[in-house]
Amino acid sequence: MIAEIAPADGPAGIRVIPLGPEHADQVLTIYQLGIDGGQATFETTAPGWEEFDAAKLPGHRHVALDADGRVVGWSAAVPVSDRCAYAGVVEHSVYVHPDAQGRGVGLALLRALIASTEAAGIWTIQSGIFPENTASLALHRRAGFRVIGTRMRIGRHHGVWRDVVLVERRSPVVS
């Protein structure tokens, strides 16, 4: 049995459960839609499932399902370093299908990620967000993340230098 991990105050008709291989095609489609939008990542194509699966931490991968069981969003985390001093720090991604944006799906996914990481003793969740992605920045503020700075012209995206806003959430319960 798959345990539902969405908080009771999540969006109506949306369940958040662990991401598994049965969700691969829908997750990678949503990832590619985010990539195609041009404001989510420096990536230009979604990886294959084997590469995606190998990179993401087990236990910190979630999907949001609509009432019909379709994946409408996902979140996942990766370690920021293999150095033991950073064992409690992860970098995360959260992607919501364009048709499901603005309905609380992203917040439900972030809450599930926060719950799973805190249960595992992870004390910091971080990410880099393009400053033009104002919806993602607002979502992260609602989920308790803070802006820690901006990396100016950190990388080229389709030949254009892009800035990245660094956000983090430090757990108040993991010390």
Score class of each variant (00 low, 15 high):
145 F>Q: 05
92 H>P: 08
77 A>P: 11
72 V>K: 02
135 A>E: 11
153 R>D: 12
121 G>E: 01
90 V>G: 04
156 R>I: 06
82 D>Q: 13
126 Q>L: 14
160 V>R: 14
39 Q>G: 00
38 G>T: 03
17 I>L: 14
112 A>F: 07
166 L>E: 13
96 V>W: 00
150 T>W: 00
10 G>W: 02
15 R>F: 02
132 E>Y: 04
27 V>P: 01
97 H>C: 04
19 L>H: 11
112 A>Q: 06
144 G>Q: 08
102 G>R: 12
23 H>C: 12
37 G>A: 15
49 W>Q: 04
109 L>K: 06
34 G>T: 12
29 T>K: 13
40 A>I: 11
14 I>D: 02
127 S>I: 00
26 Q>D: 15
58 P>N: 07
73 G>F: 01
172 P>Q: 10
64 A>M: 10
124 T>R: 13
70 R>V: 01
128 G>V: 05
89 V>H: 14
7 P>D: 13
129 I>A: 09
165 V>D: 03
122 I>A: 00
78 V>H: 06
17 I>R: 15
35 I>D: 01
33 L>G: 02
104 G>V: 07
43 E>Y: 02
164 V>M: 13
165 V>E: 06
148 I>A: 12
39 Q>N: 13
23 H>D: 15
154 I>R: 07
59 G>D: 07
18 P>M: 01
20 G>M: 04
168 E>N: 09
129 I>D: 07
171 S>G: 05
100 A>C: 08
120 A>S: 14
84 C>E: 11
65 L>P: 06
109 L>I: 10
94 V>M: 09
